[in-house]
Design a protein around this nucleic acid. Structure first.
Length: 876
DNA sequence: CGAACCTTTGAGTTA
DNA sequence: CAAAGGTTCG
C-alpha cells in the first residue's frame, strides 16, 4: 500500500515538479539535510513513515518541528505528493505556523498542501463538495453559537417549553456535547435525551437538525458529524478520500474528541477493504489495556456488535446495544483492514479541553486503537531553564492519569520560579506592572513578556493598570472580531444576499437599523412563513402585497425587500467589496453608528471598514462567507512591541521569556466550577493547565496570588492555590510584593504554604496558614472524598466543595473558611483590646469596638464599622 | 414601537 | 458590578 508515487488517476501535474525537485535535492545530498540537528528521538519520529506512530511530545520538545520535518521527509522520499497528505491541527494559528515553517523548509511547495488545516475547515471543505448528499447546498451557512441559541429558542417556543426553566443555551450545550461525541439524534441514549425539557430533549435535537437543513445551515459540530454521516452513508465517497490520503498527521491528539477520533478512524483505514464489518470493542477492556500498558490486542473476539463502516443502518440501532460503550457509539474496534500511515502527536499532560469533549482517552488508548503502533517519546526540552522545568514537572507529577514522561533540559538552572502574594487583585496588577517596567528598563523586549490568566475577567485589571502606566499591551484571543455585534450585523446582510433562505440572518437585521418592524411584525412573518413553508424573506415579499400590515410597517418592509433585490442584482456587476460598502451605506447601517454618540461607535465604524478591507482577500462573496466563520481571527495587529495578555488556554503552543501567572487562588485556579462538575478529573485538568502555564516560560516564571478578590462585584477573601503547595521548594522563591504598600502579611501567606517552612525564613508566622499548610499536607492525595480527620482547616476546606457544591452561590466558601480557620487556630486571646487604635491597609484608621477571639469589630474613621481578622490590622 | 428604567442574574476555558 | 432581560410609559 505504500508504493511510491505511481498514482494513476490523481495526478495533479503542476505539483509534480516541486516534489520532484525536492526529491532530487534530497538524493543529491549525502543524507537528507533536514535531518541534521534533530535528536535521535525526533529523527525517529520523522523517519518512521510506515504504520501508525504516536509521538508523545512534552512541552517544548520540538513537536512542530517534528511534524513539519516529517512532511518534508515524506515529500522528499517521493512517498506522496502534497495533496495526498492530510494534516490536521486544532487552531488556525497552528495551521498557519505549520504552513510557514514548511514554506521555509521547502521553498514554494507549500501551496500544494491543500489538506493542511483545522479539523473544522477540512471537514467543512469536504462537506461543501458533497453537500447535497447530506441535504445541504454547497453555499450553506456556518452558524455561530448565537444563531444556534436563537434558533433553539424558536423551537422551544414551538414546543411550548418554558425557556426560563429550560434555557436554550443549555440545550445548545447538550447538543454540542452530543455532536462532540459523534451522536446523531437517533443515537443519543434515550435516558440522556430525556433530561432536557421534560423528556423532549431528543425530539428537539432532531427538529433542530431538520431546521438546519431548511435554513441551509450547519453548526460547528456538524462540520464533523455530518462528515462522519456522509462517510458512513456513502462508502464510495469515503473510499475516494481514503485513496487520496496516503499519510495522515494529527497535531495535539490529546485534544481530539470522539467525533474527531471517528473521523480519523474512517479516513485512516486503507481503502481496499472498506466495507468490511468491524466489531465493537468491549468498554472495560480498553481501559485496563491502557493502564496495564499491555500491547497485546484487547479485542474480545465474537463481539461483532453491528457497527459497520457501511453504516447505513447502524444509526438507529447502535445505542440500544447494551454492551457498546455508552460514550463511544459507533466506536469501532481495530479495523481488520490495514491502516494508513497515521502519525499523531500529542501530550497527555497538556490536555486542557476536556470540557469541550476532548477525550484524553484517545491518546491513552492509542496503541489499542492502532495496533502495532510505534510510540516515541520526546522528553528533551529545549525551551525552559532548569528551575522552571523542575517546578512544572514536579507539579504535574501529582496527576495520576498520565502516561508519564520525564522532561529534561540541558539548559542552566536559571532563576527560580517566584511566588508573590498581594493584598488584592489591584495590588497584584500594580506589582506585575512594576515588575514589567523593571524588565523593560533592563532591556527586555515587551514581546517576550506575557501575562496568562485563568479566566478572562482577570484581564480587566491589568488592562486598566497598563493604560495608566502607558504600557502597550495586546489581548490575544479575546472576543473575536467576527463576534462583535456590528460585524455580525454586516455579515447578516451579506448572508441574506447570498442565501435568501437564511432566516436567522434576515431576522437579525430586519429591524437594524430601526425601521419600525418590531416583534409584532416579525411574529406575523413567522406565522406566514410556517404556514406556507417558505423562508421569511419570501414571506415578507408576499405579505407586503397584502394589507395585513399597518401602512408604516408595510412601507418600510417593502423598501427593505427592494433594497435586497437591488443588491442581489448588483452582485453580478459589482465587486463584492464594493457591494458590501453599498449595502452598509444604503441600508442605513453606517448612518446608525455615525449618529450614535456612545464612546465605542467610532471603533465600530473602524471595524466595519476593516471587515470590508478583509474581504479583498477573497475571490467573491461566497468565498468570503465560507471562510469567515472558520478562519477569521484578528491578526491585522501592528507588530509594535507589546506585552501579551491572554488566558492560559489560548497560551498553549506559545512561549515567552517572561511569564506572569496571576490569580493562583483556590476557587479561581483551580476553578471551583471545574472541581464541582468534574471532581478529581477536573482537578487534574486544572493541574495540567498550571503545567501548561509554567512551561510557556523560557527564563522567568512568576506566580501570584491575592488574598482578596472581587467576585460578582463583592469582595471575597481567598486562599492560595493548592498548586502552590505542590511546587518543589528548592526551585521556588517567595518574594515580597512589589509595589505592595507595605502590607506586612503579604509574603507570609505564601511562605508557610510550603513543605519546608524553615527554608523560607521564620518571619512568616501567620498561624492560620501554618495550620492550613499542615492540614493540607495530611489531606493531600486523598482526593476530594477523604476527610477523616476533623480539624478545622480540613473540614471547612472540604466542605467548600463536594456535597455543598450545588449551593455555591449562597454558601460562598472563602470568607467562612478563613474566619474559622484563623479564629480557631489561634488558641490564644487576641492581642488587641477594646478601644485600641489600629490601622488597616484598606480601611484606614479606626478603633476596636469588639473582640471575639481574633476577630475584631473595628469602627473605622472613614469606612465605618467592619469585622476583620486581627492579623490584617496593626496597632498604632 | 421603542426608549428608559428596573430587576435579576451571573464571571470558564473555545474551534 | 455589569449585562441581559423584563416592564412601563410616552
Amino acid at each position: 500500500m505504500t508504493e511510491p508515487s505511481k498514482l494513476p488517476h490523481h495526478g495533479v501535474p503542476e505539483h509534480q515538479p516541486a516534489a520532484g525537485g525536492i526529491a532530487a535535492r534530497a538524493r543529491a545530498a549525502a543524507g537528507p539535510q533536514y535531518l541534521t540537528g534533530l535528536n535521535p528521538e525526533q529523527r525517529e519520529a520523522v523517519v518512521s513513515l510506515d504504520g501508525p506512530v504516536l509521538v508523545l511530545a512534552g512541552a517544548g520538545t520540538g513537536k512542530t518541528r517534528v511534524l513539519t520535518t516529517r512532511i518534508a521527509h515524506i515529500l522528499s522520499q517521493g512517498r506522496a505528493r502534497p495533496h495526498e497528505i492530510l494534516s490536521v491541527t486544532f487552531t488556525n494559528k497552528a495551521a498557519r505556523e505549520m504552513k510557514l515553517r514548511l514554506g521555509q523548509m521547502l521553498g514554494q511547495a507549500v501551496e500544494g498542501m491543500p489538506w493542511l488545516g483545522t479539523f473544522h475547515s477540512i471537514g467543512g471543505r469536504i462537506l461543501r463538495i458533497h453537500a447535497e448528499l447530506v441535504q445541504l447546498k454547497s453555499n450553506f451557512t456556518v452558524l455561530d453559537v448565537d444563531d444556534q441559541v436563537r434558533l433553539l429558542k424558536q423551537l422551544l417556543q414551538a414546543e411550548n417549553i418554558d425557556d426560563k426553566r429550560w434555557p436554550a443555551r443549555m440545550l445548545a450545550g447538550l447538543i454540542d456535547g452530543w455532536k462532540n461525541r459523534g451522536l446523531t439524534p437517533a443515537q443519543v441514549p434515550a435516558g440522556e435525551a430525556a433530561v432536557f425539557g421534560n423528556g423532549k430533549g431528543g425530539k428537539l435535537y432532531a427538529s433542530y437538525q431538520e431546521r438546519l437543513k431548511i435554513l441551509n445551515a450547519a453548526d460547528f459540530g456538524d462540520l464533523l458529524l455530518e462528515n462522519i454521516r456522509l462517510f458512513r452513508e456513502h462508502p464510495d465517497v469515503l473510499r475516494q478520500y481514503q485513496n487520496r490520503f496516503k499519510f495522515i498527521l494529527v497535531d495535539e491528539y490529546q485534544d481530539t474528541n470522539v467525533a474527531q477520533y471517528l473521523w480519523l478512524r474512517l479516513l485512516s483505514q486503507a481503502p481496499s477493504r472498506a466495507g468490511v464489518p468491524l466489531s465493537a470493542i468491549i468498554p472495560g477492556a480498553t481501559d485496563t489495556a491502557v493502564v496495564a500498558e499491555n500491547a497485546a490486542s484487547p479485542v474480545i473476539p465474537g463481539h461483532a456488535e453491528g457497527v459497520n463502516t457501511e453504516g447505513r443502518d447502524g444509526e438507529g440501532s447502535s445505542p440500544a446495544s447494551g454492551s457498546g460503550p455508552p460514550d463511544h457509539p459507533g466506536m469501532t474496534s481495530p479495523p481488520q483492514a490495514p491502516l494508513k500511515n497515521i502519525c499523531c502527536v500529542g501530550d497527555d499532560d497538556q490536555s486542557i479541553y476536556g470540557w469541550r469533549g476532548a477525550e484524553v482517552d484517545n491518546i491513552l488508548r492509542f496503541d489499542h486503537d492502532f495496533p502495532g503502533a510505534k510510540v516515541i517519546r520526546l522528553e528533551r526540552n529545549y525551551r525552559s531553564t532548569g528551575h522552571i522545568l523542575a517546578a512544572a514537572s514536579h507539579l504535574i507529577a501529582h496527576n495520576e492519569g498520565r502516561l508519564g514522561k520525564t522532561l529534561r533540559t540541558e539548559d542552566v538552572d536559571g532563576e527560580k520560579v517566584t511566588v508573590t502574594g498581594s493584598w488584592d487583585s489591584e495590588e497584584e496588577a500594580r506589582a506585575i506592572g512594576e515588575e514589567i517596567e523593571d524588565l523593560q528598563r533592563s532591556g527586555e523586549n515587551l514581546n517576550e513578556i506575557a501575562i496568562l490568566v485563568r479566566a478572562s475577567f482577570q484581564m480587566r485589571e491589568f488592562e486598566d493598570r497598563f493604560v495608566t502606566l502607558g504600557l502597550s499591551y495586546r489581548v490575544i484571543g479575546g472576543p473575536r472580531f467576527y463576534e462583535r455585534a456590528e460585524i455580525r450585523d454586516a455579515l447578516a446582510y451579506l448572508r441574506v444576499i447570498n442565501s435568501p433562505a437564511d432566516d436567522l440572518a434576515f431576522e437579525r437585521i430586519v429591524n437594524v437599523p430601526k425601521r419600525g418592524l418590531g416583534d409584532a411584525t416579525v411574529q406575523m412573518l413567522h406565522d406566514h412563513a410556517r404556514k406556507r413553508r417558505i423562508p421569511l424573506f419570501e414571506a415578507a415579499r408576499a405579505v407586503v402585497e397584502t394589507d395585513e400590515l399597518k401602512p408604516k410597517a408595510r412601507g418600510s418592509l417593502r423598501e427593505l425587500i427592494l433594497h435586497f433585490d437591488r443588491w442581489r442584482a448588483r452582485r453580478e456587476v459589482t465587486s463584492h467589496t464594493e457591494l458590501a460598502e453599498i449595502v452598509l451605506d444604503e441600508s442605513g447601517y453606517t448612518d446608525m453608528w455615525q449618529k450614535d454618540r456612545s464612546a465605542d461607535a467610532a471603533g465600530r465604524l473602524d471595524n466595519l471598514k476593516e471587515l470590508v478591507r478583509s474581504m479583498e482577500e477573497f475571490e467573491n462573496l461566497q468565498g468570503f462567507l465560507e471562510h469567515i466563520s472558520l478562519v477569521m481571527d484578528r491578526d491585522g495587529g501592528p507588530d509594535e512591541e507589546a506585552v501579551s495578555l491572554m488566558t492560559l488556554h489560548s497560551a498553549k503552543g506559545l512561549e515567552f521569556d517572561n511569564v506572569f501567572l496571576p490569580g493562583w487562588e483556590e476557587g479561581l485556579f483551580p476553578s471551583q466550577r471545574t472541581l464541582d462538575e468534574q471532581g478529581r478529573a477536573g482537578l487534574e485538568e486544572e493541574r495540567r493547565l498550571a503545567h501548561v502555564g509554567l512551561t510557556r516560560a523560557r527564563r522567568r516564571a512568576k506566580l501570584y496570588f491575592a488574598t482578596n478578590r472581587r467576585i460578582h462585584g463583592t469582595w471575597s477573601t481567598t486562599i492560595p492555590s493548592r498548586f502552590l503547595d505542590e511546587l518543589p521548594s528548592p526551585n521556588v522563591e517567595i518574594t515580597e510584593s512589589k509595589g505592595g504598600s507595605g502590607w506586612g502579611g503579604s509574603g507570609g501567606y505564601g511562605a508557610s504554604r510550603f513543605d519546608n517552612v524553615e527554608s523560607f525564613g521564620s518571619s512568616y508566622t501567620t498561624p492560620g496558614w501554618q495550620r492550613a499548610q499542615a492540614n493540607r499536607a495530611k489531606n493531600r492525595g486523598g482526593g476530594g472524598q477523604a476527610r477523616g480527620g476533623f480539624d478545622e482547616a480540613q473540614s471547612s476546606y472540604g466542605s467548600s466543595r463536594g456535597e455543598t457544591g450545588g449551593f455555591a452561590r449562597n454558601k460562598r466558601g472563602p470568607m467562612v473558611i478563613e474566619g474559622e480557620l484563623v479564629a480557631k487556630s489561634t488558641g490564644t486571646v487576641s492581642e488587641f483590646s477594646l478601644d485600641d487604635r489600629v490601622f488597616h491597609q484598606k480601611f484606614g484608621y479606626g478603633h476596636v469596638v469588639k473582640v471575639d477571639g481574633n476577630k475584631l469589630t473595628i469602627a473605622f474613621e472613614k469606612a465605618g464599622e467592619k469585622k476583620v481578622v486581627d492579623s490584617f490590622v496593626e496597632r498604632v
